[in-house]
């Protein structure tokens, strides 16, 4: 193999038709619309750009790291023995995701989506690595961690996992906005196309930041690299997520 191979599994993972519960989440868009902060194409564009630069970038880096960890634990047989102790790394990486998500509503949404994705991925790409992740984080892995692990097991590279995570960070809210505001779906896809360079940048940042226990030369550890992953926060998304949880009328879980 000289040229990097193209991985069709990436398309399956990124497709909104992947039956993993994503359709029930708006990534804060429903709350932003309810607050009047997103009301048309320009405000949606600004929302998506900000989301991608913050939680989208963080998700991309976590997903890339999870992908690298999945690949290295599959290769080295450290996926954990089927009945015994959980394999090293997953709980630590998941805790890094939790420390970057201040809002409990967002943590819960992330864990629910991660749990649903892992359930689906384990049936599509059965692997002791995914079983190990489910055991290591019984409350449900954060979504970027589950996504990256699934990508790794499906044979994707860390950069591809990062791209899928960044893509999911903007397509979920975009679809929700089409439904909730009745925006022209073609115009909204145009906004997404405009974000393509930012998506690619997030993917390459993610791939550059990814580390697995196998790839980090001592004395550094994978955990010390994960600690330094980007942590861009979006205070407005935090406030919107908490407000959404308390809204009487809502279509989306988050």
């Amino acid at each position: 193999m000289s040229a990097p191979s193209l991985n069709a599994a990436l398309l399956l993972l990124a497709d909104s038709r992947l039956p993993a519960g994503g359709h029930g989440h708006s990534g804060g868009a429903e709350a932003a619309i309810a607050a009047g902060a997103v009301r048309d194409l320009p405000t949606l564009a600004a929302f998506l750009r900000g989301r991608l630069a913050t939680s989208g970038l963080v998700a991309a880096c976590l997903a890339a790291s999870a992908c690298a960890l999945a690949a290295s634990s599959a290769g080295s047989g450290t996926a954990g023995d089927p009945a015994g102790a959980p394999p090293g790394g997953w709980a630590e990486l998941d805790a890094e995701a939790g420390a970057r998500t201040a809002s409990p509503a967002q943590r819960e949404a992330s864990r629910v989506q991660g749990r649903l994705l892992l359930r689906t991925a384990r049936r599509i790409w059965p692997s002791p690595v995914l079983d190990g992740l489910a055991r290591a984080v019984p409350e449900g892995a954060h979504h970027p961690v589950a996504l990256g692990a699934a990508a790794g097991v499906a044979g994707c590279a860390p950069g591809e996992a990062a791209l899928a995570a960044a893509y999911a960070a903007v397509t979920g809210p975009a679809t929700a906005a089409v439904r909730l505001l009745g925006l022209d779906p073609v115009a909204v896809h145009r906004l997404l196309a405009d974000l393509a360079p930012d998506l690619e940048r997030a993917a390459s940042t993610g791939s550059g930041a990814a580390a697995s226990p196998a790839s980090v030369p001592p004395p550094r550890t994978a955990a010390s690299v994960w600690a330094e992953l980007p942590a861009h926060s979006a205070p407005a998304l935090d406030l919107l997520a908490e407000r959404h949880l308390r809204a009487g009328l809502r279509l989306f879980v988050s």
């Binding site: 039956p19 519960g21 359709h23 689906t120």
Partner: peptide, 15 residues
Amino acid sequence: QTGCCPHTAIRDDIA
């Protein structure tokens, strides 16, 4: 909660 699409949640994406 089904995000605008009750049929999706029972048919296309049952997760």
